[in-house]
Design a protein around this nucleic acid. Sequence first.
DNA 1: TAGATTGTTAATCGATTAACAATC
DNA 2: TAGATTGTTAATCGATTAACAATC
Lengths: 210, 210
Amino acid sequence: MEKEISQAVIRRMPRYYRYLGELLEEGVERISSNDLSHRMMVTASQIRQDLNNFGGFGQQGYGYNVKYLYDEIGKILGLNETHNIIMIGAGNLGQAITNYVKFERFGFIITALFDVKPSLKGQTVRDIPIYMMDELDDYCKKNKVDIAALTLPKEKAEDTAQHLVNLGIRAIWNFAHVDLDLSDKSVVVENVHLSDSLMQLSYNIVKNSK
Amino acid sequence: MEKEISQAVIRRMPRYYRYLGELLEEGVERISSNDLSHRMMVTASQIRQDLNNFGGFGQQGYGYNVKYLYDEIGKILGLNETHNIIMIGAGNLGQAITNYVKFERFGFIITALFDVKPSLKGQTVRDIPIYMMDELDDYCKKNKVDIAALTLPKEKAEDTAQHLVNLGIRAIWNFAHVDLDLSDKSVVVENVHLSDSLMQLSYNIVKNSK
DNA sequence: TAGATTGTTAATCGATTAACAATC
DNA sequence: TAGATTGTTAATCGATTAACAATC
C-alpha cells in the first residue's frame, strides 16, 4: 500500500471538488492556489500540500486547470465509477435519502430498499423497489452491491451490519446512532450521526451566548 | 470569553455522552478512564484531557461517576435546555428529520416547517404544521426559534439563511450543499453535507481495493 | 495505610503554515 | 527573459500521548 493519507486531508477533498465544480459552472478556466484559498477561506499552502499528496496537478506560473483538477479529484474520490447502494431501512430517512436524486450525478445509484414492515412490501420509491428483509440474501447474491446504507433503529444496526458483511458487502454508510464494531476491520464504515451534529451546534450556541 | 476549546474536543463530546448513556442503561455506576478508553477505542489520556477542559469530574482512586458525568456533559452540550427548531424546506429530508422523534429526548423540539409548495399548505407532520414561506417573518416574531434547519435546494440556501439571520436567528443546521457565508459571523452554522460523507466513503472503498 | 486513578505537566507526534528554489 | 506560481522543504503550531505527583 502507498503512503497513508490522513483523514484530515480526505475530509477536505469533497470540498475542493465542490468549489471546482462551481468554478467550472462559472466558466473559469484556471485558478491559482492563492485565488482558490481566498474563495474557500483556507491557506494556499494547505491547498498545495493537500493536492500534492495525490500528484502534481498544477503548473508553475499558470496555476491549476479547473476542468482537469476537477476530474482528477473526482477520480481520487472514486466518482468515475458507479456505486450501487442498497438502503437497509425504508422508513422516513431511508426514503428521503432515496429521493435525493443529486447523488446519482456523482455515480451513486440506489438500487433497492429493504425493510421488515409488511405494508411496504411491493412498494416503490422513485421506481426503486422495496423488498422484505428476508429477500436480502438472495438479492445480494444476484446483484452487485457496493454500499449498504443503514437507516434503521440502533438496536438492529450492529447485527444487520455484521450480516451484510457476511454477505460480502465491503462498505457501510451508517445513519444509526451506534459505532459499528465489525469482525472484519477492512470493511469501510462512514458514520452520519445527526444527533452528534445537533449537539455540536447546541454546544456552540451555549458558548456563544456567554 | 474563557479559554477556547478546540473543535476536535467538541466533536468528541457527543460520543462520550452516548457511551455514558449506554453505561447508565447497563446500570454501571462508576467507570475509570482506562475502562472507558477500552470500550471507546481511544486513549485514557485523551479522555482525561478532554474532560479536564471543562472541569474535574472524576475522583482519584475512584474514577468517574457515570450518572454525574453524563449529566455534566449534557449541560456542557446545552442539553439541559430546550431548543426550538424550525425546518426550512418540508420536502423529503425535512419531513424525515421532523419524524425522527429521538431528538426530542435531548431537548430539540421541531415546532414548525416552512415550504413554498402550495400543496403542502395546512398539512402537518406528526401534528407539526407546515406553513408557507411568506408566513415565516410573522412566525419568527411571535415564537421563540433557536435553530433553523435548512433542507432546501442549495440555490436558495444562502439567501434564505441571510434572511433568517436578519429575523434574529442565531444558529443554522445546514443540510444544503453549500458553505453559507453570512454577514453576521457570530451566527453558529453546523453543516451536514451528505454527499461529502458519501464521497469520503467512496474514497476509502477505492483505497481499500488497491 | 496501600492501591487506584485522577488531574496536570512534559514529551512526542502530526498537521498546518511559511518560505523559497524550481520551473513553466 | 521576467513574472508568476507551483512543488517541496523547513519552521511552527496544536493536538495527542506518556508520565507521574497529587489525592481520594
